[in-house]
């Protein structure tokens, strides 16, 4: 194994949480470990666990310490960590691929050129590489339903901007540090806005409010501005014209 010796690391989160961290950077293996470990904790159905989640490289457990003491959670976590090499755990079952129509650049996504330049590419090259990459939902967080997607190639390991862009709209595809974020609502950001979709990550008015799960894959297929306007005019299910296919286990 190539990961640093002191991982996985188990630490408390505030009064009622435990965090199991598999690496201090986002890697393919640490993200898979975090997703699989979180799912294994859920399957234990421990009485007193309130909720769990997975971030880029950690699994989080929140519990009621009056019903489930810290030492008991610790013991369970340690036992589970010993059961397997979590860095080699498979991805979750039931994953889907969403192919999402995307306008790259134009005034809809005005930071494409500078993102491409920061990656040392022409805009056309950047669009080709980005649109052919199938990225995975690494984690969902910050805002409801909002995915962090990656990894992108190392050329896209570009820093966040020093100055925030005051507001980018829902469905904005932004890029930094070899990851995309697909915004679930209008928000200020330090990531570069290089694509625009009509995909809604959070659909509170629908029976299924959240569009994505960690482990799902996405691909951002280039379309013209007119095509996106057409989708906006006709598509009412929040998918933004995306196609969705099951990924065989």
């Amino acid at each position: 194994m190539t990961h640093v010796l002191n991982f996985p690391l188990v630490r408390t989160v505030g009064f009622d949480g435990l965090l199991v961290t598999f690496a201090d950077t986002m890697t393919e293996a640490s993200n898979r470990a975090a997703l699989a470990f979180r799912s294994a904790i859920e399957k234990l159905e421990l009485s007193g666990v309130l909720e769990t989640s997975a971030s880029l490289a950690s699994a989080y457990i929140r519990f009621d310490p009056t019903r489930l003491p810290h030492t008991d959670v610790d013991d369970q976590v340690m036992q589970l960590l010993d059961q397997r090499d979590w860095y080699r755990a498979p991805l979750p079952d039931g994953r889907r691929l969403m192919q999402v129509p995307t306008v790259y650049g134009t005034d809809l996504a005005p930071q494409l050129d500078e993102a491409a330049a920061a990656a040392g590419l022409s805009a056309a090259d950047a669009i080709e590489r980005l649109s052919q990459t199938r990225v995975r939902v690494l984690t969902i967080g910050f805002a409801p339903g909002q995915p962090y997607l990656g990894p992108l190639g190392p050329e896209f390991n570009i820093p966040r901007l020093k100055e925030l862009t005051p507001m980018v709209p829902e469905g904005a595809l932004v890029l930094a540090i070899s990851q995309f974020v697909l915004f679930s609502g209008p928000t200020p950001t330090g990531w570069r806005h290089m694509g625009q979709t009509a995909f809604r990550c959070f659909r509170p008015e629908m029976a299924q409010s959240f569009a994505l799960n960690p482990g799902d894959e996405m691909q951002f297929v280039p379309v013209s501005r007119d095509e996106l306007e057409g989708i906006r005019a006709t598509c009412t299910d929040g998918s933004g014209g995306a196609t969705c296919t099951e990924i065989p286990a």
């Binding site: 309130l50 909720e51 969902i140 910050f142 409801p144 679930s184 409010s209 959240f210 960690p214």
Partner: peptide, 9 residues
């Protein structure tokens, strides 16, 4: 509401 942390809520 509890239980939607994994969905960013």
């Amino acid at each position: 509401r509890t239980g939607y942390l994994d969905q960013g809520l």
